[in-house]
């Protein structure tokens, strides 16, 4: 038996928003520790890794490990039926071929349940190696989204160049060229508004705008985003999810010819 209760179901709506542009379907692996999802997009350029710890939920029970293959368009249809303030309960029997989503209004006067068929997905699990990154940039997630959106008007690629002075995002194309430089913030009132850079050595890498823009669909999950970069390895874009865990996106760099 699997059962997870979430008082504010808006978190799951935001998670779905954050993954559905990259993935059509995904396996939600449920265990005692929580819910994990790991999947590459169809072109194997990016990978989504989601971790929601069981202790973040208001109630969580998972007697046996359960892998739920879910069509994300179907799940989106169901989650659209929930109010942001509804209490969500997800339930599945062991070895079930369906999962139930129950939404209760705050005053408990409206209760809806939606039964969704699970699908068989033959997804392989990947080991992500521990990496010491040359540069770790933390910045407001809204600022990162804005930069990706603005630069995508100029070209298909964004060059991210990090030194100890700051980080520079550049794009170029038919219209011309665009450069956005962010320095580390000297002092800010709120931690979430800070730009901080931990640099071992400078790094410059090129990434596809399209994927970066898809990652920024997670902006609503966290006020800050962390970018980790090393030469010739995938970029990691991480959004923390409150008391639950995180969503991480890995993106293969573009290779100069």
């Amino acid at each position: 038996m699997f059962e997870a209760r979430l008082v504010q179901c808006s978190m799951l709506k935001k998670v779905l928003e954050a993954i559905k542009e990259l993935l059509n379907e995904a396996t939600f692996d449920c265990s005692d520790a929580g819910i994990q999802l790991q999947a590459m997009d169809n072109s194997h350029v990016s990978l989504v890794s989601l971790n929601l710890r069981s202790d973040g939920f208001d109630k969580y029970r998972c007697d046996r490990n359960l892998s739920m293959g879910i069509n994300l368009a179907s799940m989106t249809k169901i989650m659209k039926c929930a109010g942001n303030d509804d209490v969500l309960t997800i339930k599945a029997q062991d070895n079930a071929d369906n999962v139930m989503f129950m939404f209760e209004s705050q005053n408990q006067e409206k209760v809806s349940d939606y039964d969704m068929k699970l699908i068989n997905l033959d997804q392989e699990h990947l080991g992500i190696p521990e990496t010491d990154y040359s540069c770790i940039i933390k910045m407001p997630s809204g600022e990162f989204a804005r930069i990706c959106r603005d630069l995508s008007q100029f070209g298909e690629s964004v060059v991210i160049s990090c030194t100890k002075e700051g980080v520079k995002f550049s794009a170029a194309g038919d219209v011309g060229a665009a450069n956005i430089k962010l320095a580390q913030t000297a002092n800010v009132d709120k931690e979430e508004e800070a730009v901080t850079i931990e640099m071992q050595e400078p790094v410059t890498l090129t990434f596809a705008c399209r994927y970066l823009n898809s990652f920024t669909k997670a902006t609503a999950l966290s006020p800050q985003v962390q970018l980790s970069m090393s030469a010739d390895v995938p970029l990691v874009v991480e959004y923390k999810i409150g008391d639950f865990g995180h969503i991480r996106y890995y993106l293969a760099p573009k290779i100069e010819e």
């Binding site: 990016s46 392989e124 190696p129 390895v233 890995y250």
Partner: peptide, 14 residues
């Protein structure tokens, strides 16, 4: 010009 790399080489299949 640049070509898009893929992730396949970076991660080990468990």
């Amino acid at each position: 010009s640049s070509t898009q790399g893929r992730l396949d080489g970076f991660f080990k299949v468990l």
